[in-house]
Simulated assay, not measured.
Amino acid sequence: MKVIAMIPARYAASRFPGKLMKDLKGKTVILRTYEAALSTGLFDEVYVVTDSDIIYNEIISNGGVALMSTKEHECGSDRIAEAVASMDVDIVVNVQGDEPFTERESLSGLIDVFHKDPRHEIALASLMTPLHQWEEIKDPNVVKVITDRNGFALYFSRSPIPYPRDEKTGVTYFKHKGVYAFRKQALMDFSQWPMLPLEATEKIEAIRYLEYGRKIKMVETGVSGIEIDTPEDLEKAIKAWK
Rank of each mutant, 00 (worst) to 15 (best):
E58C: 07
E58L: 02
E58Y: 01
I59N: 02
I59H: 06
I59L: 07
I59S: 07
I59P: 00
I59T: 04
I60A: 11
I60R: 12
I60T: 14
I60N: 06
S61W: 02
S61K: 13
N62F: 09
N62G: 07
N62Y: 08
N62P: 11
N62T: 14
N62E: 12
G63T: 12
G63Q: 13
G64A: 00
G64R: 03
G64D: 04
G64W: 02
G64F: 04
V65A: 14
V65T: 11
V65K: 14
V65Y: 11
A66V: 06
A66M: 08
A66N: 13
A66R: 06
A66E: 10
L67K: 15
L67Q: 09
L67G: 08
M68T: 07
M68E: 07
S69T: 11
S69W: 02
S69L: 12
S69R: 12
T70A: 15
T70F: 08
T70S: 12
K71A: 13
K71Q: 03
K71W: 04
K71Y: 12
K71T: 09
K71F: 06
E72H: 10
E72Q: 14
E72M: 11
H73G: 00
H73Q: 03
H73I: 03
H73K: 08
E74W: 12
E74P: 08
C75W: 09
C75Q: 10
C75G: 10
G76F: 04
G76E: 01
G76H: 00
S77V: 13
S77A: 15
D78W: 02
D78E: 06
D78A: 04
D78H: 02
D78G: 03
R79E: 10
R79Y: 08
R79L: 15
R79F: 07
R79M: 15
I80V: 07
I80E: 00
I80S: 02
I80K: 01
A81E: 08
A81P: 04
A81Q: 04
A81R: 01
E82N: 01
E82Y: 05
E82Q: 03
A83M: 08
A83D: 11
A83T: 01
V84M: 07
V84S: 06
V84R: 03
A85M: 08
A85I: 08
A85D: 07
A85L: 14
A85Y: 10
S86N: 14
S86W: 08
M87R: 13
M87T: 02
D88P: 06
D88W: 09
V89M: 05
V89C: 13
D90M: 10
D90L: 08
D90E: 14
D90T: 09
I91P: 06
I91D: 08
V93W: 05
V93C: 06
V93P: 10
N94Q: 15
N94V: 01
N94T: 03
N94I: 00
V95E: 04
V95S: 02
Q96I: 00
Q96W: 00
Q96D: 03
Q96P: 07
G97D: 01
